[in-house]
Amino acid sequence: MTITQQRPTNRYLERPAPSSLADVINTILDKGLVIDIYIRVSLVGIELITIDARIVIASVDTYLRFAQAVNRLDLTQTETAGIPELMEDLNSSGAKGKTSGAIEGAKDKLGELFSTDDQDEDDREKEPARSSGGRSDSGRGSSQQSRRPRDRGE
């Protein structure tokens, strides 16, 4: 059976998922067609978010945190890093907590701004679950974190 010998194209059933709130803020507020004469819908709170959530986090604290993080890393585990299954376990069990750190502040900020919104909080939970592995909840607001213009060398 040659089929069983072949590496599958990918291990996940990959399907794109609907936009989360952060995606939406990133796209529909400043992209898409506009026309000249229209009534602008009043958007309380939303304008603030796009500014306030861009908190600059590259600071001495960040560097110290990186130093602490590498000090904690046990490199004897590096040998196992190539085994995808093990890494997946690591990621799914603990990555969410570990990746928070400095970016948590910006996310909290975003959360606060939204909780002052007059909509109920349940919407977030109603966002559809992602179809594939490896996704933490960091999507909400993550794209709004500190934006540091960077030359991508393209």
Binding site: T9, N10, R11, Y12, L13, E14, R15, P16, A17, P18, S19, S20, D23, T27, I28, K31, G32, A81, P84, M87, E88, N91, A95, T99, R130, S132, G133, G134, R135, S136, S138, G139
Partner: peptide, 27 residues
């Protein structure tokens, strides 16, 4: 879809990959 799945295979151990859409072509 397959290409994104391939990226998840190869990089998923150190990245969170979000795949969003289909959207209308806002950008």
């Amino acid at each position: 879809d397959h290409a994104v799945g391939g990226l998840r295979d190869d990089y998923g151990h150190r990245m969170t990959i979000r795949y969003i859409g289909p959207q209308p072509p806002y950008s």
